[in-house]
Write a protein that binds this DNA or RNA. Structure first.
Lengths: 220, 220
DNA sequence: ACCTGAACACCGTTCAAGT
DNA sequence: ACCTGAACACCGTTCAAGT
């Protein structure tokens, strides 16, 4: 107990793990280098010995989240892809800020590329041609990583306000009628159902094209 | 010429129009209230008479871009939706920052809701049930507005670097083989083709479900 | 009615030191 | 080798004035 307790020295892993937890807790927009330093009981500049700058911190945080996704499994390509995407989705739901950060990063990290590479491999191993796999990867887009941005938040409350229904009648009828009662506990909508609906629609489409011997359009 | 030239007074429209142009020119991340004020030859605080804060400025900019999208046309729902989505895509390509800002806004503006309402109306007018329209709107996600985030930029150069190909062989083969030569001028990939591939796959899937009398799953 | 100036509480980051 | 302190050039925004 003589003098201050000797802090265990920082390292990159501790910086990243703390950044992930802190972003989970306070949101990504509130995560600053200064706030993170404070959380670690350190002066802001101490972080720069372990992380080149804030961009590299964000990249490291993304990689930490990706590391939580299950590896590709065995079986028919459709099931392999489906299971992995849902595993990715589970990881991103544990860290709500991650989808936005991934979208925002200008250059993908090696871990993101490795993930995408393994997904392309799953389609190719299933027998899809290079060309079809290329288009399929684009068509999946962010769904490969288990997310797709929502243009309108589920917005909690069951029935829309009267002014809303008057101004946007088509949206209002969707909000009230989109799910049968059994699946809507307390109003709102079943995000997992919506995600799987689109995912399966896409996978069905890919399977159909593949089964029909899809080839690039002749003209160009 | 006696004294300073009298500046014409600011108004909300001029603030928003200048903000849109400035974001086109310098990028959204460089667009600050201070930089915009400078562009208008005015002190930063002058803006706050016409726009409550930066969030409201961004909302106004989004609405300005949405106003460039063609209204819904006449015809079969599939064609109506397809044409409108491609019109939205054209508007968003004119303002590359807009997709990111739309994704980022926590609450949709009235103009965004009106747009979505009209798209829901297009599906409903085509005879799709409320339930199917609900899922269809979710499945379209940001594609309703003509964009879908790319996890990897087309990344210009035709053939991937050798180190890349070694580390990510499945991605490398897609990069080189994804398009036939006629459609790939100078390497890279045809974004419009990819967008329409996914769009048509989804629309085909919706039409198939609708034609087959799709109803919500029995169990819940 | 519209614009200004100074100030506040924040950012990420550089540089030159401390132990 | 690792951490610190002071400083720089930025943010968005409030408040109290100016014309």
């Amino acid at each position: 107990m003589a003098g201050a307790v000797r802090r265990e020295p920082l390292n990159r892993g501790r910086v990243l793990a703390t950044a992930v937890q802190l972003a989970d807790a306070i949101g990504i927009e509130a995560l600053s280098m200064r706030r993170l330093a404070q959380e670690l009981g350190v002066v802001p500049m101490a972080l720069y010995k372990h992380v080149a700058n804030k961009d590299q911190l964000l990249d490291g945080m993304v990689d930490a989240v990706l590391a939580e996704i299950d590896p590709v499994g065995d079986g028919p390509w459709r099931e392999v892809v489906r299971a992995r995407v849902l595993s990715a989705r589970a990881a991103l739901l544990r860290h709500r800020w991650a989808a936005r950060v991934i979208e925002t990063r200008p250059v993908p990290t090696a871990a993101v590329l490795a993930y995408l590479d393994s997904m392309a491999g799953a389609f190719r191993s299933g027998g899809l041609s290079v060309q079809l796999t290329h288009h399929v990867m684009h068509a999946m887009g962010s769904r490969l990583l288990g997310f797709s941005q929502e243009l309108f938040e589920a917005s909690g409350a069951g029935a829309p306000a009267p002014e809303f229904a008057a101004a946007f009648p088509r949206l209002a009828e969707l909000a009230s009628g989109g799910h049968d009662e059994a699946s809507v506990v307390g109003g709102g909508c079943d995000d997992r159902f919506e995600f799987e609906f689109a995912l399966d629609l896409l996978l069905d489409g890919f399977a159909r094209l593949h089964g029909a011997g899809w080839a690039p359009p002749a003209g160009g």
